[in-house]
């Protein structure tokens, strides 16, 4: 079976790659493009550690084929900070000590950013339901939820 040639945009950079027809976007990002920030926790769309945005839509990159990125815009955790300036969500997760091991953190941040783009003023319950697709086994979510609410407040004020 021959490989598929894909031209796409990742974090604003034009990227070309060859991938197998069955290869997931997650594998492409990690193994072909060298962006290992998205993590594989389950490979079945249950844990959210591989969350990326595809044309502004939050997806599990383990459930998207690499070939599907053709002509689209992919946003990953690596594109979240602006140079050395962290996104308010990144800064607030740090300040609230909202990560322990950090393996779920990229997915949580990408998902939370997608939420705040749609809903800049979410309630605690809205944040909890939006992030219900991102498993964290370390924190019990408490500090994550507080950090997202705090970042939302700061972004509204800014």
């Amino acid at each position: 079976m021959s490989k598929i040639h894909v031209t796409t945009s990742i974090n604003g950079d034009q990227v070309e790659y060859l991938c197998e027809p069955h290869e997931t976007l997650l594998d492409v990002l990690r193994d072909r493009v060298g962006l290992t920030g998205a993590k594989e926790g389950c490979g079945s769309g249950d844990c959210g550690a591989c969350s990326v945005e595809l044309d502004g839509r939050l997806v599990c990159s383990c459930l998207v084929l690499g070939a599907e990125a053709e002509g689209k815009e992919v946003q990953t955790i690596e594109g979240m900070a602006d140079g050395e300036k962290l996104h308010p969500l990144q800064q607030k997760l740090l300040e609230h000590a909202a990560l322990q091991c950090g393996i779920c953190t990229p997915g949580i941040l990408v998902a939370a950013k997608a939420l705040l783009e749609k809903n800049p003023d979410p309630t605690e319950t809205e944040v909890r339901y939006w992030l219900a697709g991102n498993l964290c086994r370390c924190t019990g979510y408490d500090k994550i939820i507080r950090a997202v609410l705090d970042a939302a407040a700061e972004m509204r004020g800014a």
């Binding site: 955790i77 979240m80 990560l99 950090g102 990229p106």
Partner: peptide, 8 residues
């Protein structure tokens, strides 16, 4: 922390 919130 920085490494973990930036995917590095």
């Amino acid at each position: 922390g920085i490494d973990k919130v930036t995917g590095r």
